[in-house]
């Protein structure tokens, strides 16, 4: 089980801020493929992953990063702080 968090327009498109996901995905990209296959709202959110960022256990990571040992995955658009 892994906690998956969504922020900003990713959260709005998927329609929830957080969910627990039962997955055997080895990498972030595998997880994205699993989620995309679920429903249209996921496909809409993940249509262009180059427009997204991912954090693993609250550290920025790549979509090719392994999920082994990771408890929390977050997807969000590029940050606009400051």
């Amino acid at each position: 089980m892994i906690d998956v968090l969504y922020f900003a327009w990713v959260r709005e498109r998927i329609g929830l801020p957080k969910e627990r996901v039962e997955t055997n995905a080895l990498t972030v990209a595998d997880l994205v493929a699993e989620l995309t296959a679920r429903e249209d709202r996921y496909a809409a959110a993940f249509a262009d992953v180059s427009a997204l960022r991912v954090a693993l256990d609250q550290e920025l990571a790549d979509f090719s990063a392994p999920l082994k040992g990771i408890r929390e995955v977050a997807f969000f658009p590029p940050m606009t702080g400051g």
Binding site: L60, F76, P77, P78, M79, T80, G81, G82
Partner: peptide
């Protein structure tokens, strides 16, 4: 400031009289 703009996880949404929109990250900030 440069790092806070594009490496701290904040997202701005502007609510105007005629609608709402997420602020896009700009290439210059990166």
């Amino acid at each position: 400031m440069d790092y806070l703009k594009s490496r701290a996880p904040f997202w701005k949404k502007e609510i105007a009289a005629d609608g709402a929109a997420w602020v896009s990250a700009i290439a210059e900030d990166e």
